[in-house]
């Protein structure tokens, strides 16, 4: 990166470190932090959407839809979540390939599960065997995002379902007294008011989501954990311009600091958001704000 980095053997101290930390592989490591943030940026809204749909389904008037919603909410309970991650990432992949197989190769006569193999016709492979490397990586990443969205969607659904029930009954009755239909009172009265009740639970979910991001490693993504392990390994002068001892401990210390900082930052932001959302609400926090404002 820097001009003085042409001959690392000559360097010492901070200049050596500045060169070491700006090698090409280190930029892959930094890019992996971007991947974590990207995962959060996509997975959090989609989990929220899944959660909202799940909660709507759970309070639906149509029985099968309600059962589905309730089952979805309670499916994450009682079982270690890591198992869900490992399960969904294979199951989703097989589901997509199986669906494409049914559409693209209707006259394929061999069974898909042959002993220990899962075989679909070549045209149904996802991504195709001929696809470039980046498509494989993107597909893997999207599968991971979808897995996160499904698992955390169930958790968000639980929170939102509770929040919808927490909206004061009198508010809904007033809406009915004004002659609003069920749909109108849902969208105009319940949904705007439920967020303040949902926020503590959703903040908790967000914190848990942050702390779940290293599990990307288990889903086969080259994430920060992967690179911390790779880069920290002992290098000898024969194989590397920058020989060093086993530094994995320091790399993981850096990850610990990253996550701690991220958690603290989120806590501050969420506390402000809670204050903002409590404004004008019929809750203790809203009442306290009203009194101080006077």
């Amino acid at each position: 990166m820097f001009e003085y980095c042409t001959d690392p053997q000559e360097l010492e101290g901070l200049t050596w470190l500045s060169c070491y930390l700006t090698t090409g592989v280190h930029f892959l490591f930094y890019w992996a932090f971007g991947k974590v943030l990207l995962l959060l940026a996509i997975a959090a809204p989609s989990a929220l959407a899944f959660g909202f749909l799940g909660a709507m389904a759970a309070r639906s008037l149509i029985a099968p839809l309600r059962w589905f919603g309730k089952a979805y909410i309670s499916v994450v309970r009682g079982v270690p979540d890591v198992a869900f991650f490992l399960f969904f990432v294979i199951a989703l992949d097989q589901f997509f390939e199986w669906t494409r197989h049914q559409v693209k190769c209707p006259d394929w006569d061999q069974p898909i599960r042959q002993g220990n193999d899962f075989l679909v016709c070549p045209a149904a492979k996802l991504p195709l065997n001929t696809a470039p490397e980046w498509q494989h990586e993107t597909y893997g990443f999207l599968l991971a995002v979808l897995t996160f969205a499904i698992v955390f969607g169930a958790f968000a659904a639980n929170v939102i379902f509770g929040a919808m029930k927490a909206v004061p009954r009198a508010q809904m009755e007033t809406a009915e007294a004004y002659g609003m239909t069920r749909r109108q009172s849902f969208w105009r009265v319940m949904v705007p008011q439920m967020w303040v009740y949902a926020l503590p639970g959703l903040s908790n979910t967000w914190m848990v989501l942050i702390k779940a991001t290293p599990l990307l490693f288990l889903l086969g993504i080259e994430d920060i954990v992967y690179w911390a392990r790779e880069l920290g390994e002992r290098r000898t002068a024969r194989f590397s311009d920058y020989p060093h001892e086993d530094w994995r401990m320091w790399y993981f210390l850096a990850l610990l600091i990253f996550y701690l900082g991220f958690t603290l930052l989120s806590e501050t932001v969420l506390r402000r958001l809670q204050l903002r959302l409590s404004r004008g609400q019929a809750t203790a926090a809203g009442e306290a704000q009203r009194k101080t404002a006077k």
């Binding site: 942050i210 490693f217 920290g232 993981f252 610990l256 701690l260």
Partner: peptide, 13 residues
């Protein structure tokens, strides 16, 4: 404030 997963890796190394 930190993931258990990372704590474990750190402790191991």
């Amino acid at each position: 404030g930190t993931p258990f997963f990372i704590q474990c890796f750190f402790a191991y190394f």
